[in-house]
């Protein structure tokens, strides 16, 4: 082992020994760091989940154009073809025949209503085109164009107004959650840095008499400082590991609430599918917080 690696290994051992021998202080620091990491990662995860839920709901928003009963299927398919040309604005146009509409309707509603319809003996539903926009913001424009189109007389009803209200509300919620998510996330990261910095400062403060001794015995500044950087890394690492377990617990409890609301199925799946990424993120964030806090604290309280 070269002189440098030997010293590096020794400063690591120093850091590990400080970490172990100051059991209570380490415990307190790791707890606070864990709390910070937990709050930050939870707000990020919940933010991601909310936006996934909103995306899923947005997917379900569409404009439904019903045609008069006398319009032939050929004509409707022609219109569908026409609309499909606007690939930039319109994502998909799906034809729903009268028979299909009835089937869907019967499947969705209870047997009493089904029976009532059977008694009428005639299919009261209209054939329609279900239009999905590439950009949800484009729906008003699409509706406007439909109303001015050459086939405006074939249209019985454009089912958008009620969708519109839901849609606008979704947009508002999405906007609000995104903004507050960012704000909350950042304030917690800020608080986390402050708390971690302060805790490590206390650790260093409790060691301050030793620095003088170390220097007098011939330790270089770097040799005195490096163990604290390693200590910071150890705090971060431990906190990341505790946090990943805490998040597992949270995932277990809130997973049923998100069943089917997000593309991943539920929150637990989302968590497990991204486990490696989350763990890596937590370790990096934890170690980053620990190291940065240590470095600042050392600079301020270790004027050697």
């Amino acid at each position: 082992m070269s002189n440098k690696t030997l010293k590096l290994w020794r400063t690591f051992k120093e850091g590990w020994q400080n970490f172990r021998r100051n059991g209570w202080l380490s415990f307190a620091t790791v707890s606070i760091l864990t709390l910070s990491l937990f709050i930050v990662s939870l707000s990020v995860l919940l933010g991601v989940t909310t936006s996934l839920i909103l995306d899923t709901m947005r997917e379900k928003v569409s404009v439904n154009v019903s045609f008069n009963p006398d319009v032939t299927e050929e004509r409707i398919l022609e219109i569908q073809k026409e609309l499909s040309k606007y690939g930039k604005e319109i994502a998909s146009v799906q034809y729903v025949s009268r028979e299909r509409a009835l089937e869907d309707f019967l499947a969705k509603n209870n047997p009493v209503i089904a029976q009532a319809i059977e008694e009428i003996g005639e299919n009261p539903l209209l054939a329609s085109l279900n239009i999905k926009a590439v950009n949800p913001e484009d729906y008003p424009l699409i509706v406007e164009q439909l109303q001015k189109s050459t086939f405006q007389n074939d249209i019985s009803r454009i089912n958008y107004e009620e969708n519109k209200r839901i849609f606008e509300r979704l947009e508002r919620i999405n906007e609000a959650t995104r903004k507050s998510g960012i704000a909350i996330g950042f304030s917690f990261i800020f608080i986390a840095i402050l708390i971690t910095f302060n805790t490590i400062r206390i650790t260093i403060y409790s060691h301050r008499q030793e620095f003088e001794i170390m220097r007098l015995v011939g330790a270089s500044n770097l040799y005195v400082r490096t163990p604290f950087i390693f200590e910071g890394i150890l705090y971060g690492l431990s906190a990341a590991i505790v946090t990943i377990f805490l998040l597992f617990g949270i995932a277990y409890y809130i997973s049923p609430l998100t069943q089917g609301a997000i593309p991943q199925g539920n929150f637990m799946n989302l968590y497990l599918q991204n486990f490696g990424f989350i763990l890596l993120g937590l370790i990096l964030l934890g170690m980053g917080l620990g190291v940065v806090s240590s470095a600042i604290a050392i600079r301020r309280y270790l004027k050697v």
């Binding site: 082992m1 010293k7 011939g218």
Partner: peptide, 24 residues
């Protein structure tokens, strides 16, 4: 005395050599 309180007598003396990169 200025001994490091968290270290044994051996470790206190050894520290002065460790900082110099002396082999174990």
């Amino acid at each position: 005395f200025k001994l490091l309180p968290q270290r044994t007598a051996f470790e206190n003396v050894a520290y002065a050599l460790e900082v110099d990169g002396v082999s174990t």
